[in-house]
Design a binder for these strands. Structure first.
Lengths: 396, 396
DNA sequence: CCTTCTTTGTCCTGTGAGTGGAGAAAGTTG
DNA sequence: CAACTTTCTCCACTCACAGGACAAAGAAGG
């Protein structure tokens, strides 16, 4: 069932749609105050948008001392699908046109099972969301994958942690399956877009968004736009050398940041500490679960386990050192920390901040907030919805 | 004597001026092929530009099988002044509207003497260029300074190597003295603009331009625009930590890149090697000149001096390591190496390339040229002229 | 020398986007 | 019920721009 959602016919219409989406005003008069168009022209464009069905006028607002205004808003039936494929799990969410999450599902899953298996899962999750009455169909979908993407074509390229996805036509395939337009991007970039749209980075034009999960990456936003680099691999900071002649990394080099600190590295270090008897707290958890993850380290640290705290601090220092360099280089207005490891909270943040504030130039850090993301696990799916809505709310 | 140079009245006129400046065609018909405007509209805008005096129509071109076209070009009397203030010398050049250098002067000078003394020097050099008949006056001037700049206001902020310039209203002051509009930027950014306009980075949208001189910095170009960061300090990579617990740096930290490799560091290392008797070649030169500079190291290396070659390789490795990180992070389409130290040539380049190609992601380096700048010492002044011409050739 | 074709540049009218004023519609306040 | 406010609609006018007709100027061929 293909839905032929209309597209704005010109830049004015695109502007209006985005204003309405981003929580803007909802009457013709209020819109007119913002778009620098004459009332007459505005009325014409609004009428045309009403005709396409992208927006609807229903009911009247309360009077503000004069004639009551019509409520103008995006079509209430519009639905976007946001998909966030992580290394070890998949998130799928439905949003309305304002990108508010109506329903959200999460499933453990290994990306290495390949695109076919993963898409089967994604489609079944999407079907479940539809079946629960949240959507009749999808007008567009955004999807994030944990690796570099050739953005215009929507195809992953040479993704280290997801062999089998290289060159797979994700956009094409998912568009077929869902019967709607699809856009594909790197998961970290989508997290950055999410935080920019509805999180801590609202109204910040230039910022970095560091995602520490199974791996480690960085979304780069320049002037409100995501910088993807010439081959789509920008922000891939996991393999920057953090420790000279450090630990061997899967990429073949030594001392990569990711080899020293990430969800995977932390789990390995914790297991080692437990086995060597350096932490009773961790050993107990290892005994109980059979394995350890970053969540266990967070819990142990919260319980006051010194070894866990040390591991977090050590990792935060390493990461902070790398971020310090990036801050000097890029001079952002904000640094957002997100991803699964944010459960480590203030111990991690304190170590990061210490390194950055000590090592970067005072001019670059003078007014630089370093904060945790606001959206947690929903940042990715919100960013994905934003990606496709930006696309659909632009002139065809 | 203030010259009131006209400004384009709209985006079309700005577009035409920039086409003519950048070696575009020179007849109405050829312009029409490029700007996607009807002949009539084009004719109107060209006529208006002719009225303002920004362009002139003189003579007829050879026939190409039909009616001969008029030669349209930028006013031949337009003159821009490009000023490049380095740590130890000042470059001043006059260009025509096409940004071709008509005259170029260079004077040794220490920035630390402060803005008043430096401007006196700059003005006298500008006067000399005028006196030699190259210009009757200047229509605009661009100036680069070796430190961070609050770009909109044209004011240096907290420049480490040029105390006394902090907060000095460079734009305002120079505009008064020269009687023309002035734009101020960081010297490294201007080098990047120069190479983008007339050097190796023509037609590259995203690239890094590393300048290794007395200090070390990096111009960042995103989508054809220079990224300056929120406080104007973007690209300041000299104080990224290159060596953990390395040499103490003037900034208070240890192991900064600049402390281990830069014109200043190289001179110091060479002097030490000469005094310790580790290089006869360098010792001879130290004897002869009383001091050593990067130029001496280059000459010694060219003569086969093993110690000099080692110093260059060592520095190249350090710098390459940092650049490798930046390449992974930014994923540029080109890396340009420039500045005084480029005299070290291929020994340096080889070391740099080795590090970058070994440490960065294959996807980011697969098609990444790392090359020396083409413009040498003129990159800065050409970039400065480009900066002010971009400003003046934009709608007021 | 004259005709035909090509290229360049000018003129003129039609079209559609957009502005802004007049005023209608629908309220509140006294 | 009058006066005022806010919202929305209608209409005439302006201006940017496209594109065709045509003039100007030359090349090539007979």
């Amino acid at each position: 069932m293909r839905r032929m959602t209309a597209r704005p016919a010109n830049a004015h219409q695109a502007r209006l749609l985005k204003l309405l989406r981003d929580g803007g005003p909802n009457s013709r008069a209020q819109l007119g105050d913002l778009v620098d168009l004459s009332r007459s022209k505005l009325a014409v464009e609004v009428d045309r948008l009403l005709e396409t069905g992208l927006i609807v006028a229903d009911g009247l607002a309360a009077s503000r001392g004069g004639r009551r205004s019509h409520n103008i808003r995006l079509a209430p039936a519009l639905r976007f699908l946001g998909v966030d494929i992580g290394a070890t799990s998949v998130d799928v969410a439905v949003t309305n046109a304002e990108l508010e999450i109506l329903g959200h599902l999460n499933q453990p899953m290994d990306v290495r099972e390949g695109p076919v298996a993963v898409f089967e899962q994604v489609l079944s999750m999407a079907a479940k969301l539809k079946a629960s009455g949240l959507a009749e169909g999808f007008d567009g979908a955004g999807i994030g994958v944990p690796g570099p993407v050739r953005f215009p074509e929507g195809v992953p390229v040479a993704p280290p942690i997801m062999p089998g996805w290289d060159g797979f036509p994700v956009r094409e395939a998912l568009s077929q399956d869902l019967g709607c337009p699809v856009m594909v991007d790197n998961d970290v970039n989508l997290m950055a877009m999410g935080e920019m749209h509805a999180g801590v980075a609202r109204s910040v034009g230039d910022f970095l968004c560091v995602k520490i999960g199974t791996g480690i990456g960085c979304g780069i936003v320049v002037g409100g736009d995501v910088h993807r680099g010439v081959t789509g691999s920008a922000g891939d900071i996991g393999h920057i050398q953090a420790v000279p002649d450090g630990r061997p990394c899967a990429c073949g080099n030594r001392g990569c940041l990711e080899a020293h600190f990430s969800g995977a590295a932390l789990a390995r270090d914790a297991t080692e500490a437990a086995e060597q008897g350096r932490s009773v707290e961790l050993a107990t958890r290892l005994e109980a679960n059979g394995s350890l993850s970053a969540v266990d380290v967070a819990a142990a640290a919260a319980a006051g386990d010194a070894t866990s705290l040390d591991l977090i601090r050590e990792g935060g220092n390493r990461t902070g050192q790398v971020i310090a360099g990036l801050v000097s280089f890029f001079n952002p207005g904000l640094v957002v920390i997100g991803g699964g490891v944010t459960g480590l909270g203030h111990t991690l943040l304190a170590a990061l901040r210490t390194q950055v504030y000590r090592q970067s130039l005072p001019l670059a850090t003078g007014n630089l907030p370093i904060v945790l993301g606001e959206l947690g696990p929903t940042a990715g799916v919100i960013g994905a919805a934003r990606l496709i809505s930006d696309h659909l709310f632009s002139p065809a």
